[in-house]
Computed example of a mutant assay.
Amino acid sequence: MINRMVWNQTAYFGPGAITAIPNELRRRSFTKAFVVTDPVLIETGVAQKVLSLLDDEAFPYVVFSDIKPNPPIENVLAGLAAFDEAKADVLIAIGGGSPQDTCKAIGIIANNREFSDVRSLEGTAATTNPSVPIIAIPTTAGTASETTINYVITDTENKRKFVCVDPHDIPILAIVDPEMMASAPRGLKVSTGLDALTHAIEGYITAGAFDLSDMFHIKAIQMIATALPSAADGDPEAADQMAMAQYIAGMGYSNVGLGLVHGMSHPLGAFFNAPHGLANGILLAAVLEYNAPNSGEKYRAIGEAFGVDGARTLPIEEVREQTVAAIRDFAIKLGNPTSISAIGATEADIPSLAEAAYADVCTGGNPRKTNPEEIAAIYRSLL
């Protein structure tokens, strides 16, 4: 079997990493930036940390901040029109998954105009040209969009989220600076951290996993299990660990795929505008329980990271059971919701949610083959 790995050309890590941006802009001979961020990051001054660096260098830029959570097609089209008007030659994405994903879609369509409808980018679209160059600066420790070939857009008209997978969209430069993440509220740190954990666990057990991706995912699981609770409470060293862990998870899952947690999470975002990581946190333990019979020995490493006694020696059935319990307890102690009813789902929604989850591109990577009826049963168990 042939396996492919695609990563950034260049990445900077650690407190103060954003100071590398001006030199990189000069080194690459860019002349004007189109900055994609969101209103909250403008209001809180987080985006200004980067904009001030550009101001100090008198580097021209235009800011586009009309970004909504779970970014809809309309955001992409508005951003594309603004990008065309700006006549910039580099994109700078500042934010969590919503600005990052919007930026990727803008960059891809700008150089592949035949995909201007946006919907045709779903799945593995046959784009021919690389995106407009992107410098990606995450402000949450979760999505790892700065190192992945994936992005997710919401089709509000049809109440669905669709995943785009395209090596042409990967940022040329990632700036992973934990100081850009420090001011996020605790709830956001929890939900994005659970997103990173889900990436790591699903990437580890997905059907496409192999030795190299396993290396990244095991390390990310270990780091997140240790760091997330303290990072959520503001510990700077733990926050630095989370910034690195989510990037490491991204290096893996971007190349091997995910699974049913993400497949079921996307419809919850599309139907109820639920934050993606929060939805993942609700679903993760239940889907791990469902996948347990098809997980081989892999729950041993996951269980060990979460303190399951005897994870390497107990019968695998016991390890799987205790690992699921440990993951469920981890999310509860962090304060994540435990039911889909908490985000507005009802029994009447389940058939439509299940059909959408079954059709999601991430579901195809799940280690256990599934169907809408079994997916509906998982949703129903979480009401």
Rank of each mutant, 00 (worst) to 15 (best):
A301M: 09
A225M: 05
L334G: 08
T363G: 01
K333M: 11
E321H: 12
I224P: 01
S191E: 14
E374M: 06
E321W: 01
P229C: 07
D89W: 09
G96A: 03
F306A: 02
P130M: 04
T37W: 10
I375K: 11
A227R: 07
G365E: 00
G365K: 01
A93S: 15
R26N: 10
V118E: 09
P178R: 10
Y12G: 01
G250S: 11
F115L: 07
L288A: 04
I350D: 01
A285W: 10
D177I: 15
H217L: 11
F306S: 03
T128E: 15
P229S: 09
E318S: 12
H276P: 14
D177E: 09
I327F: 06
P293M: 09
T102Y: 00
G259Q: 11
G234C: 11
N371D: 15
L268D: 07
G79K: 05
L197M: 15
E43I: 02
D309S: 12
M5V: 15
V6Q: 06
L383M: 13
E85M: 06
F216A: 13
N75A: 08
R27M: 12
P171I: 07
C164W: 03
T156L: 13
V261E: 10
L268F: 06
V163N: 10
D56V: 00
A141M: 02
M180K: 08
D214L: 07
M181I: 11
A141T: 11
L268W: 00
N23D: 14
I343L: 13
I18A: 13
R320H: 10
L80M: 08
E146K: 10
A354G: 08
G307A: 08
A105L: 01
I67A: 06
M180N: 13
G234T: 12
A17Y: 11
N129G: 00
F306P: 03
H266V: 01
I42P: 14
P178K: 05
E202Y: 01
S65G: 05
E355D: 04
F59I: 13
G250K: 08
D214C: 07
